[in-house]
Design a protein around this nucleic acid. Structure first.
Length: 570
DNA sequence: GGACGGTGAAACTTCAGGTTGCCTC
DNA sequence: GAAGTTTCACCGTCC
């Protein structure tokens, strides 16, 4: 074994920041001995793993399969999860006895969406070999299918991003952390100890294995020692409060006021004095300054009012300028909607503009895309720049937000918000998931997340329009909300009221001249069965209950019940 | 001489994840 | 910062 030398020390400092002076050589020597002993033990074990392929990860996976065990392979990007799974799948064979199960699972995964995307095809291919990849870009159905099959032992290996380190309970005999670096704010950096330990925690299945193995892959020999020190011997990072971050602070401040938890500067300051932030940073002066700034903004935006109290309460006797802070009706709603007050303020500005000038779906979509909640926005590539700018020029009249100056820092973000809005435009124009993936590089799972946020923000916009009595806009936004949810053109709205009918079935019906509930009633069972299949046709007919009166037509209990009467659209 | 295809260097692009809100008698 | 993807210049071949 090599001794601990100066070069090693220098390399180590890259893993954890440490002052070069005041070194404890004795302690380092002890650690050195300890590391060597562990390394020796591990090398003996690892040597038992046959080197069949050039790739260490593949060898470990093959060894796991030989042992009839399961493994999770953690990597740092979605693309790498897919590629690693694919490479492994190419190298493994399967038992004939499992073929049927795997083929059926592969089929299920391939057809999880109305039309398979390249991602579906890739995953279906891997699954045939009992290998899978798992990340946030997968459709919900596919994620669940992979997780279930892993629990049942049908899937043996999952290559994943940290999705599987948190939340999901999926233990495996072996955990292989292939990538320990990831792109962050400061370029590529070591991932937090806390996260790696979370991954380690997946190793070993209670009731199945006596032990679990967690393995980190070092890319160079020099990395080994650093990894050992940082991730095995090292302490997890400290947790820091983010309360003083402006978007966070203004959101919580408004909600504290709206719920009546605090009602004066004095009670506000005394509340924040007791928070983890104050405990950690002791700098109340800075926090108070930020609070004052936020209060001024909330007041300017009409979310709170501050007035001198007519009477002086016993609590505020000592304060000569006793004031009373409370949330306005608008402020209370913003707090309930749990959106950033800045987002709410900007939406309100846009809504006011929409009363004065023409507004379309693109107007409202761009409005919700240029918010902190929707971040990160889609990146505008160099070659797309011109195209997006052209859209901006062409549809300038439609945008509800003022366009930033060309050289303003916000200009690029504005273009990104337009691109994100254009993706939603394609979605509500009934473009497929595959189209969205190809054109915008947005995977089905990522689209689902963005859709969810859009739904929330459109609902918030609808509610704000309601409070502000902008009646003209309420219906427009509500319609758009349903269209974003289903990814459908406006003409399909009447049919989407039916249960079991999404955009695909609604489009089939519409193209066959069945365009509203009345048409569904008129349609004969044979035609309907040919279009939708017998079971669904029966279900649909039942919903329009022809034996009942029109009022009793069963309409889908929509997720957004109470907020809009969908009947208005038909 | 021009069209076409192959090749490799250079330029460009992208990079984890998750929660919040509504429902209603 | 690194890996993957796209673009582009260059060269050889064929018609």
């Amino acid at each position: 074994m090599r001794r601990y030398v100066r070069e090693d020390y220098e390399e180590d400092t890259a893993y954890y920041e440490k002052e070069s002076d005041g070194r404890n050589y004795e302690k380092e020597y002890q650690e050195e001995e300890e590391f060597d002993a562990i390394l020796k033990k591990n090398i003996e074990r690892i040597e038992l793993i046959q080197n069949i392929e050039d790739d260490v990860t593949i060898n470990m996976v093959l060894d796991t399969l030989k042992k009839k065990k399961q493994a999770l392979v953690f990597v740092n990007t979605k693309q790498r999860a897919e590629k690693t799974a694919e490479e492994i799948a190419k190298k493994v064979g399967i038992d004939a006895s499992e073929k049927e199960k795997l083929n059926s699972l592969s089929e299920e995964i391939l057809n999880a969406l109305s039309k398979p995307t390249k991602q579906c095809e890739r995953l279906a291919f891997c699954v045939k070999k009992s290998i899978a990849f798992h990340h946030a870009g997968l459709a919900q159905k596919q994620r669940e299918a992979i997780e279930d099959s892993f629990r049942k032992g049908i899937i043996k290996i999952i290559c994943c991003t940290p999705t599987l380190a948190y939340g999901v309970d999926l233990p495996a005999f072996r955990v292989i952390v292939k990538d320990l670096k990831r792109f962050g704010y400061r370029g590529t950096d070591w991932i937090p100890v806390l996260e790696v330990q979370q991954m380690f925690g997946r190793a070993g299945r209670p009731n199945y294995d006596n032990e679990g193995q967690a393995i980190c892959i070092a890319r160079t020999a020099g990395e080994e020692r650093g990894i050992y020190k940082k991730y095995i011997k090292g302490k997890p990072e400290e947790i820091y409060s983010k309360l003083a971050v402006e978007p966070v602070l203004r959101t919580y401040l408004l909600s504290l006021i709206a719920t009546g938890f605090v009602n004066s500067r004095k009670t506000i300051f005394s509340f924040f004095k007791k928070t983890f932030w104050a405990y950690q940073f002791h700098n109340m002066q800075m926090l108070n300054a930020t609070i004052n700034k936020m209060l001024a903004l909330l007041k300017e935006w009409d979310f709170i009012t501050e007035k001198k109290e007519d009477f002086v309460s016993a609590d505020s006797l000592e304060s000569s300028d006793a004031e009373f802070i409370e949330a306005t009706l608008l402020g209370k709603r913003v707090a309930e909607l749990y959106i950033d007050p800045l987002t709410a303020h900007e939406i309100i500005d846009c809504l006011k503009n929409a009363l004065r000038k023409p507004a379309s779906e693109l107007s409202f979509l761009q409005m919700i895309c240029n918010t902190l909640e929707m971040y990160p926005l889609l990146n505008v590539r160099t070659k797309e720049y011109e195209e997006i700018e052209e859209t901006l020029l062409e549809k300038q009249e439609l945008f509800l937000q003022e366009e930033p100056k060309l050289y303003d820092a916000e200009y690029d973000e504005f273009l990104k918000s337009i691109k994100t809005a254009l993706m939603f435009m394609d979605w509500i124009d009934e473009k497929s998931e595959e189209y969205i993936l190809e054109k915008y590089n947005v995977r089905p799972g990522e689209l689902a997340v963005k859709k969810n946020i859009a739904d929330w923000l459109l609902y918030s916009a609808e509610e704000l329009a309601r409070i502000l009595k902008f009646r003209k806009l309420i219906n427009e936004i509500a319609k758009l909300r349903i269209r974003v949810d289903y990814g459908a053109k406006e003409e399909l709205l009447p049919l989407l009221r039916l249960e079991q009918v999404g955009r695909v079935r609604a489009r089939i019906l519409y193209n066959n001249r069945i365009r509203d509930i009345g048409d569904v009633k008129k349609a004969d069972m044979t035609t309907l069965s040919q279009l939708l299949g017998h079971k669904i046709a029966l279900e649909v007919k039942k919903q329009v209950g022809q034996e009942f009166s029109e009022e009793k037509v069963k309409v889908k209990e929509h997720k957004r019940k109470g907020q809009v009467n969908i009947k208005d659209f038909s």
